[in-house]
Simulated scan of single mutants.
Amino acid sequence: MKFLGKKKPTSAAPTTRERGMAAEDQALVHLQAAGLRLAVRNYRTPGRGGGEIDLVMRDQDGTLVFVEVRSRASGAFGGAGASISAAKRQRIVFAARHYLLRQPAPPPCRFDVVLVQEGGIQWLKAAFDAQ
């Protein structure tokens, strides 16, 4: 079949999920370069209404780090960081508590956020707590 007029598109634009996975890949490389080790990627609680943790990492001192990765194309409207609502933090904490049920003795923990936007990465250690 021959196209007349417009060129045939070579590839579709990446989906939101594909952009999110690419941001997680960037964050993972960044955190591993800083000495953290991956424990689990995309940990989900079972059932409806649960939560998801993008990356569960282990810091060099043994701290278990629950990482939320947020990505935005630009800094408009508050950028990637502004997209982490109180409800989103609550779901992350819920998923972290569920994850910790599998641990024989819960280690020290923290909640980090990695922001990927405009070609840069910003790592916010202890960005929020479980309260």
Rank of each mutant, 00 (worst) to 15 (best):
K7P: 11
L100M: 10
K125R: 11
L55F: 04
D129N: 13
V69Y: 01
K7Y: 10
V114L: 15
A105L: 13
A12W: 07
R48G: 15
A87F: 07
A23H: 03
S74P: 03
R44D: 09
R91V: 02
Q131Y: 08
G20A: 00
R58N: 12
R110L: 04
D25R: 04
A12F: 08
L124D: 06
Y43E: 04
A12T: 11
M21L: 09
R44G: 07
E118L: 01
P104M: 00
K8D: 02
T15Y: 06
T63N: 11
D112G: 00
L36Q: 07
V67M: 10
A33Y: 00
N42C: 08
Q122I: 15
F3W: 11
R17C: 00
G20E: 02
P107F: 06
G120V: 15
C109D: 05
Y99T: 01
A127V: 04
W123I: 06
A105R: 14
H30S: 12
L28C: 10
G120P: 13
L124P: 08
Q103S: 07
Y43N: 06
S74W: 01
R89H: 10
L4I: 11
I84L: 12
P106F: 01
A12V: 10
G75L: 14
P106R: 07
P9D: 02
A73C: 06
V67E: 05
S85C: 03
R17F: 05
G5Y: 02
A80M: 09
S83T: 14
K6V: 05
G50F: 01
A105Q: 13
R97N: 05
A130K: 10
D59A: 15
R37V: 12
N42T: 13
R110P: 12
G50N: 01
A96L: 01
T16W: 14
E52D: 03
R102H: 03
R37I: 10
G47T: 10
P14H: 03
V69S: 03
S71L: 08
A87H: 07
G35P: 04
G49D: 07
V93G: 03
D54N: 01
P106D: 02
S83R: 09
R91G: 03
M57K: 12
L124E: 14
V29Y: 00
Q26C: 04
A82R: 08
L4V: 07
